[in-house]
Amino acid sequence: MRTAVVIGTGLIGTSAALALSGRGVRVHLQDHDPARARTAAALGAGTDEGPEGRVDLAVVAVPPAHVAGVVADVQRRGLARGCIDVASVKGRPRRELADLGGDLSQYLGTHPMSGSERSGPLAATADLFEGRPWVLTPTRDTDTEVLNLALELVSLCRAVPVVMDADAHDRAVALVSHTPQLLSSLVAARLEGAEETAVRLCGQGIRDVTRIAASEPGMWIDILSANPGPVADVLASVAADLDETVQALRSLQSSDEGERGGGAAGIEDVLRRGNSGRARVPGKHGTAPAAYEVVAVLIGDQPGELARVFADAGRAGVNIEDVRIEHATGQQTGLVQLMVEPKAAPGLSAALRERGWSIRQ
């Protein structure tokens, strides 16, 4: 691949363009808002000038509802040898393209499983896709050249290709992406009218659950409108669990010992099923999640503190597997939770104490 055009210079489109440009591909940027294309170009993602002839690959990075129309336009203009999209829904755009009379052999639906609660070209990074799954949904109609171009794009972005059926993909993302967004927003919405004293008690748990609730509503309306059925199915299942959990909690208020026991069993059941489901979420390098030990370090909110604690951990010969930061409300301090292999935790705690760090159990 020597040339590409990226249509839609938001987070995903600009990140892909940055990765391609950084690896020697000449990228042409287009957007319905020329200012966004100019911003992406200024970031080094490519040029906002049109290509002189046909490019190797067109990457359509627009909301799902607009994918089919844009792809059909690309094909009518003969803009590229092959065309892919990167929208988060795959079944409906393909069916809509067929209804428009588009050439399905020269089109491939794809979806990089990477993103952020931030949007727009200024949120883009060239390494956004590194190590992340990138779903490809070829069919028997897909031209081999188009599939190879898509695989080359995935490779240049240093992502991991995953081949799926389009409708199976849509059911999967309803479970692992679209429903979590709505549930995060539902929990965060409870905070809107909460007492200030309650909000000041927010800790890492509520921060983790509500992080993606900061996402742009307009973008998610586009996504959910293109995949409403599978999302509704998952939410209906969650709603059934919620109803049972509410009843179990009510039972815990009962004066009847047997009813309280039944309520506790109901709560234990959902918690244990949650444990089982969480254990299936891939961990580091796509392997089963490991049980790490947490070494919590109190740090000040000032430049260089994080770098210093990481450097001291490195001097102790300990690999940090994961990290979380919990900020203290109203204080200029926070807890850095260093996740390490259990056998390394005692030595790391001792080494950090020797270097003057305050360790919290």
Rank of each mutant, 00 (worst) to 15 (best):
Q247E: 15
E259H: 01
E259R: 14
G262D: 09
S254T: 04
P282R: 05
V270I: 14
R260Y: 01
L242T: 07
A279M: 08
G229Q: 12
A226N: 11
A265C: 03
E257K: 05
S225C: 13
R278T: 02
D243W: 01
V281Y: 06
R272L: 04
E268I: 00
D269F: 09
I223H: 07
D222W: 11
L249Y: 02
G266Q: 04
L252C: 10
Q247W: 10
E257Q: 11
I221Q: 09
A288Q: 08
S276V: 05
K284S: 13
V231G: 02
D256H: 01
A248N: 12
A240G: 10
S237G: 12
S237C: 03
D222E: 15
G229S: 12
S255C: 01
I267C: 10
S276F: 06
E259N: 08
L249E: 01
D241T: 15
V270A: 04
L271A: 14
E268G: 04
P230G: 03
A232C: 08
L271Y: 10
A240D: 07
A232H: 12
S237D: 12
A239E: 11
L252D: 07
A279N: 03
R260L: 02
A248R: 11
A265F: 04
R280K: 14
S225M: 11
S237Y: 00
A239I: 00
L271V: 08
G262S: 09
T245R: 00
G262Y: 00
I223G: 02
A240M: 02
E244H: 12
L224T: 03
G258F: 01
L252K: 11
Q247T: 13
Q247G: 13
A264L: 15
S254N: 02
L249N: 00
S251K: 09
G229E: 15
P228I: 13
I267L: 15
V234D: 10
H285D: 15
G274K: 03
N275R: 15
R280F: 08
I221Y: 10
D269H: 13
R278N: 05
G286F: 09
P282L: 08
Q253G: 05
V234R: 05
G277F: 11
V270G: 02
D241M: 12
D241G: 10
T245F: 11
D241Q: 15
L224F: 05
G258Q: 13
P230C: 07
G274P: 04
D269S: 15
S237E: 13
D233F: 03
G277K: 06
P230E: 00
